[in-house]
């Protein structure tokens, strides 16, 4: 565990806390893509199946359970408790366009052709693009609430910090996982446009509004 990795995980937890707090406080999930949240839930479920087969540390298992639990809770808030506020007309990204290529890619580009390994690889590929329905929704409505922007910034920072962690681990431990690194880079690149808008607008107390 290095500082980048710790900060990454904290940013990830912060993102989840911001999202749940926003929905709970406003009693509304307006502006949040349920489809991105479905994809994230799928990502955690596929990746953390190994919680039963391999033990890394107490920290590791706790975080896995936290991500599984909170993603289930988020889906419950969006699709049950606050369903009337869910903006499904603007959440129109077709997730099959992400699921099918990720599934095919994980069958061909993996570390080992075994069920758990392919599911892990699928989750890594899917995570890298899972935010697209949310970004698509922001682009479609042309704006995002500040709190949604904070959520996206924390969530994007998490994988960017993992990239720093991988550089550190490559130098310090000669450890690297090419699949995770490339997918992590793709994931981070997808947020770049948003990061730019966040820094130039939201941090200056302006609403995130896209140019028409």
């Amino acid at each position: 565990m290095n500082i980048f990795r710790l900060m990454a995980d904290l940013a990830h937890v912060l993102a989840i806390v911001i999202l749940l707090h926003k929905i709970w406080k406003s009693r509304s999930c307006a502006g949040i893509s349920g489809k991105s949240q479905i994809l994230f839930a799928l990502v955690y479920f596929m990746r953390y199946l190994d919680i039963m087969t391999s033990y890394v540390s107490f920290y590791n298992s706790t975080m896995k359970l936290l991500f599984l639990g909170t993603s289930g809770a988020t889906l419950n808030l969006i699709y049950r408790k606050f369903k009337p506020s869910y903006d499904h007309n603007h959440d129109s990204f077709r997730i099959a366009y992400l699921l099918v290529p990720c599934a095919l890619l994980s069958l061909f580009l993996n570390h080992e052709f075994s069920v758990l390994e392919i599911l892990w690889t699928f989750s890594i590929y899917l995570e890298s693009v899972a935010i697209l329905p949310q970004l698509f929704m922001v682009a479609k409505t042309g704006e995002a609430e500040s709190i949604t922007s904070h959520y996206l910034f924390a969530l994007g920072s998490y994988r960017a910090l993992y990239v720093c962690n991988w550089v550190y681990r490559y130098i310090a431990e000669s450890h690297f996982d090419l699949i995770a690194i490339i997918a992590g880079l793709v994931q981070t690149i997808l947020y770049c446009d948003f990061f730019y808008l966040y820094i130039t607008k939201v941090l200056q107390n302006r609403k995130l509004q896209l140019p028409a």
């Binding site: 890394v56 540390s57 590791n60 975080m63 896995k64 080992e112 450890h175 995770a180």
Partner: peptide, 10 residues
């Protein structure tokens, strides 16, 4: 890859 691929991350 075996040996390199340790899944100790989240």
């Amino acid at each position: 890859y075996p040996g390199i691929h340790v899944k100790d991350e989240l």
